[in-house]
Amino acid sequence: MQPLSTRTHIALLAAVVAAAILPALVPDYYVQFAAKVLILGTLAMALNLAVGFGGLVSLCHAAFFGLAGYALVLAAPEYDEPSLLLTLPLAVGATVLVALVVGVLSLRTRGVYFIMVTLAFGEMLFFLFHDTPIGGGSDGLFLYVKPVLAFGETILLDLGNPVTFYLVSLAAAAGTWWLIRHLLSTPFGDALTAARDNERRALALGIPVFRVRLIAFVLSAALAGLAGYLSAAQFGFVAPQMLGWHLSATALVMVVLGGTRRVAGPLAGALVVTGLEEVLKYFIDDWKLVYGLIVIALVLLAPGGLQDVARLTGLGRRAGTPALKLKEANNVG
């Protein structure tokens, strides 16, 4: 993975500052909407670690997302403030344990079989919460009091506050982006990409492909769990739909639309998918039909995702030109 240029660093800093001051500029509704985009973007970036960089098309990431949400609600006292410090590690830890089992079993398969096995595990978890009383069945469960980060009697972070919640979601998305990007710049990231490019050659080089993929899969699931925890905290409600394959497929659409070769691409994909849904719902009754047509058109016309759209419309970076790409690449030390 190429290091970022100074120009990109400045643009990123500007984007983070703009995102941080957003609550001061727009009404609460849009702050909550932005938090939702950031959470789904975190889920999509997590999924892309497996899909785009690991070549592992998973259809059970919604299950990890929902599992962490359920873990928060089940661990929370009914009418008291749940501790962020206790419930977040618990929720992510539960996700990691399940992902470890799913990964060990499913990563022995390849291609379409991997997709089907992950779909099967996802559906098993969906029906576990849908058909048993563990999580309130199909009615789901409510989280009456939002988690807080407290030091003694002093509350440092209250996720019940929309602005605080938005900033925590922003930090989660930025942290996820940084972590994945950092990981991909290490030899581990190179090994993951090499295994995606050609598994046999990677094995012949001594790369423990299964272990590398398992670590990436579990990390990806843990980040999906972080997003699920925040989603449950935002809406104060969890239902089996959070674990269903529909959400996994929607996250996959975000990944494909955003572009699989960029860490932040799926975040942009989440903005487009969520924004389209929001706008179309407002203006059109049969909005899903139009939504579907737009997604099909985007995939057909811009198979490389939103960066293709940006380039086609002249908004993309000049780095899109092959000559400049080569020049930039040769400057990397």
Binding site: P187, D190, T193, A194, D197, N198, R201, L205, A329, V332
Partner: peptide, 15 residues
Amino acid sequence: GVFGSLSVIENLVMA
């Protein structure tokens, strides 16, 4: 059998 997605340096360092 080089890894096309990785740079020359990455191809070398990973091994």
